[in-house]
Nucleic acid binder design. Sequence first.
DNA 1: TGAAACATGTAATCAGTTACATGATTAC
DNA 2: GTAATCATGTAACTGATTACATGTTTCA
Lengths: 201, 201
Amino acid sequence: MRVLKYAILGLLYRQEYSGYDITSQFKQEIGQFWSAKHSQIYPELRKLVDEGLIEFRTQIQGEKLEKKMYTITDSGRQQLLTWAAQPESLPETEKDEFMLKMYFIHTLSLLEARTLFEDQLRQRRAKLADLQRRYEQLMPVFVSEENKATPSDRAHEHKNGDRLPLQFNNPHLGHYLVLSKALAREQSYVDWLERHVKLFS
Amino acid sequence: MRVLKYAILGLLYRQEYSGYDITSQFKQEIGQFWSAKHSQIYPELRKLVDEGLIEFRTQIQGEKLEKKMYTITDSGRQQLLTWAAQPESLPETEKDEFMLKMYFIHTLSLLEARTLFEDQLRQRRAKLADLQRRYEQLMPVFVSEENKATPSDRAHEHKNGDRLPLQFNNPHLGHYLVLSKALAREQSYVDWLERHVKLFS
DNA sequence: TGAAACATGTAATCAGTTACATGATTAC
DNA sequence: GTAATCATGTAACTGATTACATGTTTCA
């Protein structure tokens, strides 16, 4: 599979990044769906250079701190596109240790089960709230679908800045998709927990 | 973490299984949230025996086919309970290669993106339908919450067989929880895909 | 009698985490 | 000055998959 390879190529498709920058990216929204530690990233970057899919130039930060700025090559771009357009079959398993514990609920006392379940609900609500905050921060980047290309837009174009409607050619579409999907995933988790929490009262 | 260790102990908590049986269990409902290949299971069983957490007896199937039936020990039971009652913090990342591709949507043409997205929708709908079928097969095992302990129940107790209300002490609760959660997860996935498929038309 | 399922293992490889290791820069 | 962050790497280990390897039983 080598998904990390393609995750890195995908990040470098739009701009150059250092290994540290890539590590940072995986702490942002895309980290909801893919991530890696720096100890996996640096050797992978080395490998991609050896394979001719990326290149780097050394840049000096401050007095003497060297950082390597990586860019994608034509060959890398080509391999990225081949992977990205390829449909994959669904994974049989999406691992979730909490749900494994729920399958073994009969091993717990009512109090233990309630504690575990309520803790999960608390954590999932906190994560949901964080994602909602991020979502509300992102949305002003887009012009709403209803307002796009109406005559009145002409009159206050200056208000929109670089805002574009949420459609296929929007350069922020990927960002929006992962954030809205993460939000839907957590909302569904919280809803399910709330529907079942009464089992433990 | 050694989650597989606890997954196996959890399965053996209620009944004895062979390595092959455990492999089969991971192809059932619990496989939605945890699974392992036989090549990981057999060495793990060996390790658990060495650690004194499980034991086995050899049983002859037919003429000469030997299978090892494993049971959990007191020590194994104790370690299982310690793990099961312990709340865990949420994983930062729940990997999803399709969503990684969506983050890189700008690398694709409209047609490629639409093909990928519609393929995912098709696969997720098929999975959802399969889970719904399983859910409808499981539900008759339970007496509905509304009907439980009403005077009329006394009159036709014979109709219920071993059916019990869906509450904490129900021995099938774990099975119900994983199936309803898997269903909620896939329903949420399909809903999200349907909400966004128009972006590619 | 042949295919699918039952049954158990090992070897090689790949993916990913934790720990070890070092040093520079920035902002308070 | 000092703490947080920036910056890059390697080593050891753990977790997981793919491939290799073999043999039996059941059912059509």
